[in-house]
Design a protein around this nucleic acid. Sequence first.
RNA 1: GCUCAAGUGGCGGAAUUGGUAGACGCGCUGGAUUCAAAAUCCAGUUCUUUCGAGAGUGUGGGUUCGAUUCCCACCUUGAGUACCA
Length: 990
Amino acid sequence: MKYNFNEIETKWQKYWAENKIFKAVNNSEKPKYYVLDMFPYPSGAGLHVGHPLGYIASDIYARYKRHKGFNVLHPQGYDSFGLPAEQYAIQTGQHPAITTAENIKTYRRQLDQIGFSFDWSREVRTSDPSYYKWTQWIFIQLFNSWYNNDSNKAEDISALEVIFSSEGNKNVNAVCDDDIESFSAEDWNAFSSEKQQQILLQYRLTYLAETEVNWCPALGTVLANDEIVNGVSERGGHPVIRKKMTQWSMRISAYAERLLQGLDTIDWTDSLKESQRNWIGKSVGASVTFNVNNHDAVIDVFTTRPDTIFGVSFMTLAPEHELVSQITTLEQKVEVEAYILATAKRSERDRMADVKTISGAFTGAYAEHPFTKEPIPVWIGDYVLAGYGTGAVMSVPCGDQRDYDFAKHFNIPIPNIFDGVDISEEAFADKANTKIGNSDFLNGMNYKKATKRVIYELEQIGQGEGKTNYRLRDAVFSRQRYWGEPFPVYYVNGMPQMIAAEHLPIKLPEVEKYLPTETGDPPLGNAAVWAWDTLKNEVVSNDLIDNENVFPLELNTMPGWAGSSQYFNRYMDPNNDAEIFSKEAIDYWQQVDLYIGGSEHATGHLLYSRFWQKFMFDKGLVPYDEFAKKLINQGMILGTSAFVYNVVPVVLDKEFLRPTNIFVSKSIYDKICLDSEVEENFVKEIVKQYFLETDFKGKVPPKITSVIFNDLHVDVSLVNSSDELDVKNFKNSRTEYKDSIFIGENCNVINGDNDKYIVKRDVEKMSKSKYNVVNPDNIVADYGADSLRLYEMFLGPLEQYKPWNTAGITGVHSFLKKLWKLYADDNGLKVTDAIPTKDNLKTLHKTIKKVQEDIENFSFNTSVSTFMIAVNELTAQKCTSKDILEPLLVLISPYAPHIAEELWNQLGNNESISTVPFPKFDASHLIESSKNYPISFNGKMRFTMELPLDMSKDDIEKAVLANEKTQEQLGGRIPKKVIVVPGKIVNIVG
RNA sequence: GCUCAAGUGGCGGAAUUGGUAGACGCGCUGGAUUCAAAAUCCAGUUCUUUCGAGAGUGUGGGUUCGAUUCCCACCUUGAGUACCA
């Protein structure tokens, strides 16, 4: 019997699928356990070996939990809407629905061959109408809700209407738009229906508003803050500009505090919690109102240092601040307008890159200090951001470095309000050591006391109050793209209306042109069929038709994170067409017990999902307001890229750099970098010849002053494990390299086997463009899925970033072969009914103990080593006992399920191994009668001594001192003291 | 700049209430088998060494009989974030 992994793996994968072994039921005597993976985007490139890392880890855990007697929910699906899928479709010129379906097929095949224990009967696809029906449904629920700060939860919008009609909005404490006018019950009832709708829109949890958004012209859509990295789009790295557009937004800011507090209740990694905390960006301080001299206007500022209010020597407004045009004096008008124009021209990126340059302009206006009544000059400056706080600051140059620099630059006075602090060089921003002086009623106080007092005083004069600010902005929810969920929205006289829930889903229409437009007109506008016939014939909604007129529909689509914010709940009851999930299903599964996925979703998906979950909790739909109890971030598997050094000659007199088709090997490159003339002259000569044959036929080529090099990625499949490039195949791989010249390690032009070419290696993210992708298909074909699974775990700790190296897989592969040999050889099965020896039992039980601890701590890498040791030991012990070898298979089965299932079957078991109870650990097999104690003198280990384990501390001490080796070491001296650590060490001092 | 994480052989990495550093695997060296190769098996593999031993977990200090582990300072790398008032 041979270990034929390909045959075994196909056989068992088929068996698992046909017998629905991993199907989870929604009611069971067993305790439940929900293991979730972040579902993949089915991109066109397919899976590389990095993708399954987290899936293998969660699969091991899911299988382990089944052995432990749990009813395990381990689903999988596809996040198939959104930018990447659409970008791929645009590149290939096919409809996204077609490419997505094809990509999903590839993904499914690749996932299946790794042997995951997914319950595929629960598969969801975010682009499937039966799924996005419920994404649309949640949108409607959000639209019909407002956030009541008094009850601290989302409530029905109809309740708000009742309040408005009975008492107006003066007692309403809601999270809403900033510019709400106050009205009485009479006012409300007198308002037109449209006016009422307009007001309600300012309170809804998803609302339509004209806001400054991040517009990406190249992608033809707006982006949320988390989709922008370093001022450019996360996808594709295109520039992003600020633009005013009417867009749907999600009032996530209502949940800022609860999103922050909730972090303390969940078992997520600290680094991830930390980045969510930073993103939410809570800061506690005060809002202060400054009157403007000779104007009705007031300037509201937010400050975290109200205690420094007597240090204010000027105020700064953001250039975009709405008051600027009102308060600027005639004399300053030209200067201010010029400055505003100049800052508007600078892109967000320039502004971020250049934080050193200080710029600003004086408006000519003065504000009044709330306590001293002194006039304070009002400036504008682009270091103040319009989007944070109120877009205005009270500038305290002695206590804030930016204010200090600004004041220095424009010669504004810097009053010192700190006792015993020198501020001649820089501002003093140390809260903890603050002692206020020069500040009227605050003199002598520390930061804490002064803050409390000043807020009290501000409240007395009605010019301020304590306030908490959050950095978290409401999330823009509209995308001007085709491949996303359509909104369940139509417009009557410009006011948005929800399509009745019974008409959902609103299906994405077929369109001819689905490409985004630079102007921002949504591609759904092209859907003539959708806007007219579909509505009449398919949606059949009377709401939408009024006197034969069809009202216009919302043409934007939802962002990529919409579908991924509810999928974990939908898995509980994915085929329910009447409800998002049944009450029984959610009551049984409750929440995700273990979620494994990448940390790159920290401020996107993982924050939005928590927001939706909290909302659904408020609505009584889910029993927990956190969707995932525990979360682990798997690290990334990196690729090992290979590079060739392309020669670029420099010709100084003509300032001429020209790429050539000449490549030098690594050591030649190194030598030339160290100014070795022999190699450099050799290369120059080759370049000269190259010029004579190509660009300068018959002419005198220019003098080459030096050569520089360009690193060029080469396909890693053309490089062997000794970093040697297959020159012949490289030349054939692309036509432009057909005639290229390679200079080998020993400085020869390579022609056949006369020399070899060594590449440069570097570790990078795996990507097609870097030619460093390793396809799991090849690994599975060559070594089998079990080897792949074991090796991915063996590479290192789950959370860590680590490079892939195919060469190392032989280690785990030969382990599997050894494992097979332990059970069977050419003559068939070797397993007998022999009674296990003491050593057999010891090996088994220490393995049970270690593996169980490892899985529960997610240290999957070390348990692979444990298996190897166990198999080596049992092989050496010539163990054939069924009592040992059967439980061993159960231990290994979460990691290498196919081989375990096959051998289990060979041993005569007809049931699948997958729910066999995990072996019980029996400590009695590990207890030894004696132990080797290390004996040390003055901390230095001298020898070891065998002592019984049940000896008392005192007896150990006596026995050690009586020992002849100890006497020899002591040489007649009397020791100062003897330290005994039971089970570990004896140290003799003195 | 700020926050967080990490630094151990040629490489991936083991080792936690502080107790024999380098488990396990790759690679490498030698051997067995083979006409030969692959595969397999066995032995060795931190460095230095006068073969006695000595040094050694980023660097420098500290606590301790004893530190990869705890404390302080520094260096390096990676990740996140960035004019947040």
